[in-house]
């Protein structure tokens, strides 16, 4: 790579473009925290003055806490299940030669591209035909479905990043498949498991569409926010809540993506 300096040399116009691009990605959402501290019920320039009253009001809002509690419960359960399912798949496809594995992976990846409304509607039909009530359980089920592809992708790249000879050594030394898995495989992919859990959690925590179709009377946080958007006087509260959610999810996703590549020396492993 030393002789290709003419390819790798810094390119100023492209660098400027890249900075603008990142600005385009980040600046729009930055307006939420900006206006959340503005002492004005209307979201408009010029800024009037600094206040934290919207945050104070938000912390006193009981329905918000209930919705947050629902979201946390759904998020934890669905991401734990999705990560476990992703772990099985990642282990299977990276360690065994399975005939017809490509179409299987394709099917598991489908929820990543199929419009969410289709899956939401289809699950809604199934659930009502089976006579179940819409509840947090049905939302959890839907969130497992949309999280599994991301869990699988995260864990496969982690599994590919470590040497299978470690597992071979373990079984050479007399460990059975289960103890090899618990004592060798799992500790080595642990960062990937954590990354997958965090990523699935944010997907569940942020999901609106599946919760919209499959939710009962208990709202998750995005459904709660959606309800607030109808009332103009509620908007500053949404700004405060939204700012907190954005900051927390940025941090969680950042940790998740970083963990996933931590110790793995390649940048080609996709999303």
């Amino acid at each position: 790579m030393t002789d290709v300096a003419y390819i790798d040399r810094p390119n100023r116009p492209l660098y400027v473009y890249a900075i603008f691009y990142l600005a385009f990605l980040y600046i729009p959402v930055m307006f939420l925290p900006l206006f959340s501290f503005n002492d004005n019920i209307y979201i408009t320039f010029p800024l009037k003055g600094f206040t934290i009253q919207w945050y104070v009001a938000m912390f006193k809002d009981q329905p918000m806490w209930a919705a947050l509690n629902n979201s946390l419960r759904v998020g934890c359960v669905s991401s734990a299940i999705a990560t476990l399912l992703g772990l099985f798949v990642a282990k299977a496809v990276t360690r065994y030669r399975i005939p017809g594995v490509k179409p299987i992976i394709f099917v598991i990846m489908l929820p990543m591209v199929v419009p969410l409304i289709i899956m939401g509607v289809a699950l809604l039909i199934l659930v009502t035909r089976l006579g179940f009530n819409l509840s947090l359980y049905t939302i959890t089920m839907a969130h497992v479905l949309i999280s599994v592809p991301f869990a699988m992708a995260t864990l496969i790249s982690r599994f590919e990043g470590f040497d299978p000879s470690m597992e071979e050594a373990s079984s050479d030394l007399g460990a059975g498949p289960w103890s090899t898995f618990w004592r060798v495989t799992l500790p080595m992919v642990a960062p990937g498991v954590l990354a997958s859990f965090l990523l699935c959690f944010t997907i569940s925590f942020d999901d609106f569409i599946m919760a919209f179709f499959l939710g009962g009377t208990d709202p998750t946080l995005p459904i709660f926010i959606w309800g607030q958007l109808r009332f103009p006087f509620r908007l500053p509260g949404v700004l405060a809540l939204g700012s907190l959610i954005l900051i927390i999810s940025f941090v969680v996703v950042f940790i998740s993506l970083w963990l996933r590549r931590w110790g793995v020396e390649d940048t080609q492993s996709g999303i």
Partner: peptide, 19 residues
Amino acid sequence: WIILMTVPFFSSYLLRIFA
């Protein structure tokens, strides 16, 4: 760089539209 570009995708869809 890659993480910086990917992070916004996983932050709340509803809030980005609201923004």
